[in-house]
Design a binder for these strands. Structure first.
Length: 557
RNA sequence: UGAGGAGUCGUCUAACGGUCAAGACACGACACUUUGAAUGUCGCUAUGUCGGUUCGAUUCCGGCCUCCUCAUCCA
C-alpha cells in the first residue's frame, strides 16, 4: 500500500511525526488494534484498523493485533476467528504480532503483587453497590473504603487466597489506592482484579481472578513496546489512570491518543445493539448484508478496497459527528463501476412477444462486458421471439418524462433492436401480463437507418434462454438518518425499515451468469451492483444480493 | 451541581496568525450518452456567541451557549 496521498494529515499522524522528529522511542512506531473478542467487527472497527495499520505502514512501523480478552463472560473463540478473518480480508497483515491480553495474566498478576507490596493496592470487601456509594457523586467527595488500610501482609495473604479460589464471585476485589476525592471518577480507587469463577476461552480454568481493562490495557501496551496507543474518545477520562498505572510500575510508557469513533447514518453501531438485532432475529446473523459489520459488508459485495478508501477519506479528528452512508456507497460504486462486468437481469419479469420474429429462431447479440475496461472483452447473449423486460419499464399511461416502453412507443433494447409495443394483454384482474410487439431488423446496430431516435433504452433477457435466480434487494436498515433517535417509550428496533430486504424470487438472468462464482460482483445494467451470495447460492439455484443501486437521477415526478 | 473533550457549508474534512475560508459527498441545473449509470461543465446561504490580544484571528486568551463522555468488580 502506498503512503497517504492527501497533503494534509490527521492530528494523530502529526503527533507521531513530531515524536519521530524528537527521537521519542528512538523514532520507532508501534501501534496496535485491540478488539475484545465478544462480537463481530463493524465498519467503526475498520476505521480504527485502517488508522493503526495505516500509521504503521506510513511510518515504517508495525501494528499488532491484540485480543483484549480480560472478561471471559462475554468472550469466545468464534469471535477471535471472525476478527482475524475480517482484518485479513480488509487487507492488513499483523505478521507474527498476534497477542492476547491473557498471555500477560501472569506478569500482570506479579505486577499486582508489586503494587500491594508498595502500598498502592489493597484487597477490598465492599460489594459493588457499596463501592458505588463510597465513590459518591460527581460533585461530592468519595469516602475511603474501611479496608483501605489493611497491612501489606494481610493484602498479600488475601490476594493469594482470592487467586486460590477461596472466595465467591464479587466477595472481594483488588483495588488501586489512588484518591477517593478525585474529580475523575476513574481515580477513586478503581478495581484491578475481580473474582470470576469462569472458564476462559484460552486460559481455561487456570484463573478465577481476572484483571480489569484499566489494569490490563496499558500494561499490555507497555509489554509490547507500543509507542502510540490509539483509542476512541470515551477513554479520554481513563488516560490519567492509564498513565498512573504505568508510572506506578515504572515501565515503558506508551502515549494514549483518542479520536472520534465512526457514526454512520441509517444504521446502528454499538455491539450491544448489533447483538440485539442478531439474537432477536431482526437480521439473519452477524453477516446479514444489512449489518454494518465487516462480514455483512463482505457478503453484501462491498470491496475491501472501497472500505479502505472510505476510511482514508473520512478523516480522523476529535469531533463526534455522523458520516453519511452515501459516502461509503460512493466508494463502493466507484470501485465496482471500474471492475464489475455488466450483465442483463430482470428482477420483475414482464413477457414480450415479438410478433414479427420467427418462432423457434434465435440469434446471438454481442455485448460489451465493461465499458470502463476494454480488456474485459465482450460476450454474446441470445435473442429470440419471446423476451422478458422489467415490469417497471412499461407504463400504459406514462408521464412526460418516462423514457421507457408504452403502448405505441418504440424503445431500444440494449445490444439488440428497436422494439415497438402494439398491444397490451391483461388478465382478468386487469394486470398487464404480456406485451405484443414488433421489432425492426434494420436497427441491429442500435441505430435506425432513417436516424429516428427511440424513446429510451431498456434491458432484456431471452425468455427461452434465461436462467432463474433469487435476487435479494437490500435497502437501508433504518430509514431515519439517526437510526436510534426514537421518541420516548419507543423501542429503537421498531423503526427498522420494513423494506430493508425485498426478495425477488422470479428473477430472470442472461445465461452467461449460470456459472457465476460465490462472491462475484456484476453490474446488472440499469439496476445496480449485485454479487453472488456467499452462503445460500449454488450452481442450480443462484442467489444474488444487491450491493448498491445505481445512482438514480430520475426526476421525482 | 464536578471533571474531561468538542463546536467551520446540509454532511465529513482542510486552512496551524496573513490573498476571494478550500475539497469531497449530498443537493440542483445543463451537456453528452445504446445503462435516466458513468463522464463533463456550472451552481450551492459555513468559522456557535460575546469580548480581548494583534496592523491582521477559523487559528491565541477569557466569559457564555450547545453537544459528547464519565459515578460497571464491561471494554
Amino acid at each position: 500500500m502506498s503512503k497517504s496521498e492527501t497533503e494534509s494529515v490527521d492530528f494523530v499522524r502529526q503527533i507521531i511525526t513530531e515524536d519521530i522528529a524528537n527521537k521519542k522511542n528512538g523514532g520507532a512506531v508501534v501501534t496496535r488494534f485491540p478488539p475484545e473478542p465478544n462480537g463481530y467487527l463493524h465498519i467503526g472497527h475498520a476505521k480504527s484498523i485502517c488508522l493503526n495499520f495505516g500509521i504503521a505502514n506510513d511510518f515504517d512501523g508495525v501494528c499488532h493485533l491484540r485480543f483484549d480478552d480480560t472478561n471471559p463472560e462475554k468472550e469466545d473463540v468464534e469471535y477471535v476467528e471472525s476478527i482475524k478473518e475480517d482484518v485479513r480480508w480488509l487487507g492488513f497483515d499483523w505478521g507474527e504480532n498476534q497477542f492476547f491480553a491473557s498471555d500477560y495474566f501472569e506478569q500482570i498478576y506479579l505486577w499486582a503483587i508489586k503494587m500491594i507490596e508498595e502500598g498502592k493496592a489493597y484487597v477490598c470487601d465492599l460489594t459493588t453497590e457499596e463501592v458505588r456509594e463510597y465513590r459518591a457523586g460527581w460533585n461530592k467527595e468519595g469516602k475511603d473504603s474501611p479496608y483501605r488500610d489493611r497491612s501489606v501482609e494481610e493484602n498479600l495473604d488475601l490476594f493469594q487466597r482470592m487467586k486460590d479460589g477461596e472466595f465467591k464471585d464479587g466477595e472481594k476485589s483488588l483495588r488501586a489506592k489512588i484518591d477517593m476525592s478525585s474529580p475523575n471518577m476513574n481515580l477513586r480507587d478503581p478495581a484491578m482484579y475481580r473474582i470470576r469463577h469462569q472458564h476462559h476461552h484460552r486460559t481455561g480454568d487456570k484463573w478465577c481472578i481476572y484483571p480489569t481493562y484499566d489494569w490490563t490495557h496499558g500494561q499490555s501496551d507497555s509489554l509490547e513496546k507500543i509507542t502510540h496507543s490509539i483509542c476512541t474518545l470515551e477513554f479520554e477520562n481513563h488516560r490519567p489512570l492509564y498513565d498512573w498505572y504505568i508510572e506506578a510500575l515504572g515501565i515503558h510508557h506508551p502515549q494514549q491518543i483518542e479520536f472520534a469513533r465512526l457514526n454512520l447514518t441509517h444504521t446502528v453501531m454499538s455491539k450491544r445493539k448489533l447483538l440485539e438485532l442478531v439474537q432477536g432475529n431482526y437480521v439473519s446473523g452477524w453477516d446479514d448484508p444489512r449489518m454494518p459489520t465487516i462480514s455483512g459488508m463482505r457478503r453484501r459485495g462491498y470491496p475491501a478496497v472501497a472500505i479502505r478508501e472510505f476510511c482514508a477519506h473520512i478523516g480522523v479528528t476529535k469531533f463526534n459527528g455522523m458520516t453519511d452512508l452515501a459516502l461509503l456507497e460512493l466508494y463502493v460504486r466507484n470501485n465496482l463501476n471500474k471492475t464489475a462486468n455488466r450483465a442483463m437481469a430482470i428482477l420483475d419479469p414482464l413477457k414480450v412477444v415479438i410478433e414479427n420474429y420467427d418462432e423457434g429462431k434465435s440469434e446471438m447479440r454481442k455485448a460489451v462486458n465493461n465499458p470502463e475496461d476494454e480488456s474485459a472483452g465482450i460476450r454474446e447473449m441470445p435473442f429470440s421471439r419471446e423476451l422478458y423486460i422489467e415490469r417497471e419499464d412499461f407504463m400504459e399511461d406514462p408521464p412526460k418524462k418516462f423514457f421507457r416502453m408504452a403502448p405505441g412507443r418504440e424503445v431500444r433494447l440494449k445490444n439488440g433492436f428497436f422494439l415497438k409495443c402494439n398491444d397490451v394483454i391483461k388478465d382478468d384482474d386487469g394486470k398487464v401480463v404480456e406485451l405484443r410487439c414488433t421489432y425492426d431488423p434494420e436497427t441491429a446496430g442500435g441505430k435506425a437507418p432513417d436516424g429516428r431516435k427511440p424513446s429510451g433504452t431498456i434491458h432484456w433477457v431471452s425468455a427461452a434462454h434465461a436462467i432463474d435466480a433469487e435476487v435479494r434487494v437490500y435497502n437501508v436498515l433504518f430509514e431515519k438518518e439517526k437510526a436510534d433517535d426514537v421518541p420516548e417509550g419507543v423501542d429503537w428496533k421498531e423503526t427498522i425499515n420494513p423494506e430493508s430486504l425485498v426478495v425477488m424470487k422470479n428473477a430472470k438472468l442472461e445465461p452467461s451468469l449460470a456459472d457465476a462464482a460465490p462472491g462475484a460482483c456484476y453490474q446488472f445494467e440499469r439496476l445496480g451492483y449485485f454479487c453472488v451470495d456467499n452462503q445460500d447460492s449454488s450452481a442450480g439455484s443462484l442467489v444474488f444480493n444487491r450491493t448498491a443501486s445505481l445512482r438514480d437521477n430520475k426526476k421525482k415526478k
